[in-house]
Design a protein around this nucleic acid. Structure first.
Lengths: 239, 239
DNA sequence: GACTTTGCACCTAGGTGCAAACCT
DNA sequence: AGGTTTGCACCTAGGTGCAAAGTC
């Protein structure tokens, strides 16, 4: 409703894997182009004690549901290689080091619109922007728990709310990532800064926007007293 | 869930009016004390073209629903006197002037959790903080349309999602207000500023918090060049 | 040495009343 | 003169990577 479809998302390819009963249900990844730019570098996701969002945000377009049937939509993280990783700055790539931590079953992030009718889920993209990752194994805030330096891939589950509770699961190869507490690959850092609006403060100064260097208004009222020279300049300029 | 119950809300009195089939459903007004402080002065709500929230926010605690039955919860505004009002600054009170505009049936603000089970609605207070008022009769954003200088009272509707669609309606006398495009009664303005966190910038300076008068960090780096005197002071202080 | 934690400057996003300008 | 609109300074609320300090 308040979200526009990008050509990007329309063109996003079909899910790579599909588990469960064969149906007409289809799920498309949004911002697939952005996801692929990260994936080609080796996506990293910051993980903190208090919980950190993913960027890019996992968001999908769902099709083929029964408009009047109720569904629950949720996401979990699949640990796709039971290994621990280390970033080799020397080789500029991730290398595996040992067997990795034993994984408990992933927590589920249930989309807050659940349960809702098929018509609702299909009306506009379903975004999981509220989902947060934590490395705190004792987390009490319902965030998704992961092990740092391990590789994961999000899975989207669509569950029919009838007796059968049929589950349809989808995941996208380009959304896999390694959880980190600090970015390892500088190119990932750059791409995050370049593409995440909340990291704008770290972008190379693009000249255009120097507004933030101006003196705030309540300070300006004091300026004539401490800068009589500039005050005179300004007064003259106005004439 | 993320909202605490105040003693205030627990003690809030029962709804004044109840329309519809007799049931055990009960609705309690939250922040009733605050609402009453406004009501005793004559509550005013700002209304704009682009839509303005109400303050206090309408929020209720619902009890007596069937936990597994589905309900839709919504709010509309009842024009409780078909008159136009004017604030007499001379007498410090509202006086009616003429018959008032003819009212179309009020738009409904449907709570975004709808439809949901009784258990959901009863688990935590139901807040209508996303509801906005507009005076634009051609509004296209789904906001509630009102006539300025008219008196309204919000109504909470709880609708059972079965064949009968039984509707239970509740309203609270202390939530009535006059829609305005600019505050008329200065005491209302003061109480809004005092109690709405978003209006903190207009509060009388409580000395404690002068942080906003400080020079921002990126300006500070330039200070030594334009304030050599203070720069020397600072340098000496560090020794 | 290889991570992890913490405080922080700097953003996004959007809710306030104010004052001046604008209507009729 | 009475009511409305608009731009704005000032907030709340919370999402970023950074750098320094902490941990093992």
């Amino acid at each position: 409703m308040n979200r526009s479809f990008s050509i990007d998302s329309i063109l996003a390819r079909k899910p790579k894997r599909k588990i469960g009963e064969d149906r007409l249900i289809r799920v498309f990844l949004q911002s697939a182009n952005l996801w692929r730019r990260f994936h080609s570098l080796g996506t990293e996701m910051i993980v903190t004690k208090s919980g950190r969002r993913m960027f890019p945000t996992l968001s999908v377009i769902i099709a083929g549901l029964d408009p009047v049937k109720n569904y629950v939509v949720m996401v979990d993280l699949e640990c796709i290689e039971l290994k621990r990783f280390r970033y080799s700055f020397h080789q500029s790539k991730w290398i595996s080091t040992g067997p990795g931590e034993s994984e408990l079953p992933s927590r589920m992030f249930v989309h807050s619109d659940s349960p809702a009718r098929g018509a609702h889920w299909m009306r506009s993209p379903v975004s999981f922007d509220k989902m947060k990752l934590t490395n705190n194994q004792l987390d009490n805030n319902g965030h998704i728990i992961v092990n740092s330096m391990h590789k994961y891939r999000p899975r989207v589950h669509v569950i029919e709310q009838d007796e059968a509770k049929t589950r349809h699961t989808f995941s996208f190869e380009e959304t896999e990532f390694i959880a980190v507490t600090a970015y390892q690959n500088h190119r990932i850092t750059s791409l995050k800064i370049e593409s995440n609006p909340f990291a704008k403060g770290f972008r190379e100064c693009e000249v255009q926007d120097m507004a933030h260097l101006q003196v705030p208004a309540n300070f300006q009222s004091v300026l004539p007293f401490i800068f009589p020279y500039f005050a005179n300049l300004a007064a003259n300029a106005e004439q």
